[in-house]
Amino acid sequence: MAGRWTNTLTRADVTPERLYLNRRQIIAGLAAGAAFGGGTQARAQEALEPNSWEEITSYNNYYEFGTGKDDPARLAGQLTTEPWSIEIDGLVERPGTYALSDILPQMTLEERIYRFRCVEAWSMVVPWQGFELADLLDLAGVAPEASHVAFETLLRPEEMPGVARPVLDWPYVEGLRLDEARHPLTLMATGIYNRPIPNQNGAPIRLVVPWKYGFKSIKSVVRITLTDSEPPTSWNKANAREYGFYSNVNPEVDHPRWSQATEREIGGGLFSKRKPTLMFNGYEEEVASLYAGMDLTENF
């Protein structure tokens, strides 16, 4: 199942050491077209310029460590991420506690350079390393009656000062439809820039669903439950009018309090120009079929 989607950028192009090179030239020299969906479709992914390590790791939403953008970078250092295991339960053939150290050797780690669009209308490009969630689901064996996947973040108050406040109903939970979870783009990330994922970014393992708003990409996952109905999700529980279950990036459906038509790329400085937000965050070709016939204004 691994390797169902590739960037035109190679890993060499995103290492910080080579950031000073003329990236456009490197990209131009690369063969266009990437294997997708079993290699039947060739597509040229637009070249994405990843944000710097500092940008990616200093501006985070991880409310378990506080609601300020710099709180996670300041306070997440104390989080213990080893040993780590994920409880996989619900409608699976082999439920149980899977140690991360046992999972990783069975997975194919890949580089995925994805756009990351926050519901707050800012965005980054992140060079993730990780494996396809579908492969992890297959490890546990999905039962035929399963239709959805529920995720849960670690809740450890002694290491997470933010959970002392009821900003959200802890632990943080998220969910996907099974077809979304099994989509080739859906990643379980364990690294950024070839380094272990920093605590403030959701160490040691987090979900990345690039066509949805960032809060769907749940961090520091400790539990994955296969269900036969739509699972509750934290932001939807907190404010159903503002945050739907799907939360697909959609420039045409505004957040009740702000426009989603444009976004600001992090790292552009004080005079950074806004740029138009792309439908499904630029992954329309890959994922639009998942929502064929659905009213996306209704199912926001």
């Binding site: 940008e55 200093s58 953008k69 710099d70 600001r264 950074s272």
Partner: peptide, 18 residues
């Protein structure tokens, strides 16, 4: 604060910070 925003002292998203 404007100077800090120009020179990176307000973090990687200076517009919102300012």
């Amino acid at each position: 604060l404007f100077y800090l925003g120009l020179t990176g002292g307000l973090g990687v998203e200076p517009i919102e910070a300012l």
